[in-house]
Structure formats: C-alpha cells, structure tokens
C-alpha cells in the first residue's frame, strides 16, 4: 500500500514537470492542402501564421500565438502554425524547437519551395517576409493580413471583430 502511494506521488510529481506535450510528429503539407483548409466554409475563425525556427523575429513572436491559440480555443478560433522550415528538418530541428519552447499547438510544415507561385494567393501585399499572419473567416467573408510581427493589442482588437457571431466577445 505504501509502495503504491510512493509510486502515485512520483507520477504526480513527474507529470507536473510537463507543461504539456509538444508535437513530435509534424505533418508535411503542400499548398493545395493549405488552400483546402482555408477555403472550407467554416464558422471557425482561422489564424494562419507563417513562421520558421530559423527566423529570429518569428521565434520571438511565437509565444503570442501559442497564447491566443489556448485562450481563444472556446471562442471558435483556430491557429494554424505553418512552418516554413526545410522538410529535412521536420523530424529533428522543428520538434526539438517546439519541445524546448513549450509550444504545444499543432504545427504543419509547408513544403512548397516555389514561393513565387503561391505568395500572392495568400495576399497580394505580402512581399514574402516572415513572420506573416492571416485572419480568415470564410462564413463572414472577412480576411486581414499582416506582414512582420503583429502588435499584440491591435491584433487582438482586429481578431475580436472577426469572431464568429455565435461567440460572445
């Protein structure tokens, strides 16, 4: 009995060490796949966030989107973390980065190296610099695009105007 108790406390102790479980397997997608997700008629507001582990301003900004992803989960907001890392890093560099920075959201790696063929499809004003972020609500026909790091306060204000009408702000 006493042994069981010790084991139990051990388990509790170790599980409290983990803040969450970061993703170890990252799916590689093509632009076509991303477009399918983006074009789906949906009540949920999508935040499509382009970033990479090699991009310093992206890495600095990522915790903001991780926080939004957790806090707006109940408000029908889904953050898509689209990594622009090279596919060769999909099983190594990217998951170890997510683990070390406690990013628990789902990350997809976009393998579409002919950037010129799809940058304009995301937004005509996008020069290609990351981080870049798109807020999208297909049902409300609303979209807003940001190149470079967002200003957290005004981004959240914008997001609030794009929440599904069924959600109370």
């Amino acid at each position: 009995m006493r042994f069981r108790l010790v084991v139990f406390f051990f388990l509790i102790f170790f599980s409290s060490c983990h803040k969450g479980f970061s993703q170890s397997k990252i799916d590689v997608i093509k632009f076509e796949d991303l477009q399918k997700i983006m074009n789906q008629p949906n009540d949920t507001t999508l935040i499509v966030h382009f970033w990479a582990t090699w991009c310093k301003p992206c890495v600095e900004e990522l915790p903001i989107f991780e926080k939004i992803s957790q806090e707006y989960l109940q408000k029908k907001v889904k953050v898509l973390f689209i990594s622009m890392d090279f596919p060769k890093d999909v099983a190594t560099k990217v998951p170890s980065f997510l683990k070390s920075t406690n990013i628990n959201s789902n990350v997809l790696l976009l393998d579409e190296p002919d950037y010129n063929s799809w940058i304009d499809v995301i937004d005509k004003d996008w020069s290609g610099t990351i981080p870049a972020t798109l807020i999208l609500n297909t049902n409300m026909r609303k979209r807003k695009f940001y190149e470079g790091p967002v200003k957290a306060m005004s981004f959240l204000e914008d997001l609030k105007t794009m929440l599904p009408s069924s959600v109370e702000n």
Partner: peptide
C-alpha cells in the same frame, strides 16, 4: 519580378 521567402 518574383517573390520569395527568406530571412528578414
């Protein structure tokens, strides 16, 4: 004129 991704 073409667009691309790179390091800021």
């Amino acid at each position: 004129f073409t667009k691309t991704v790179g390091c800021a």
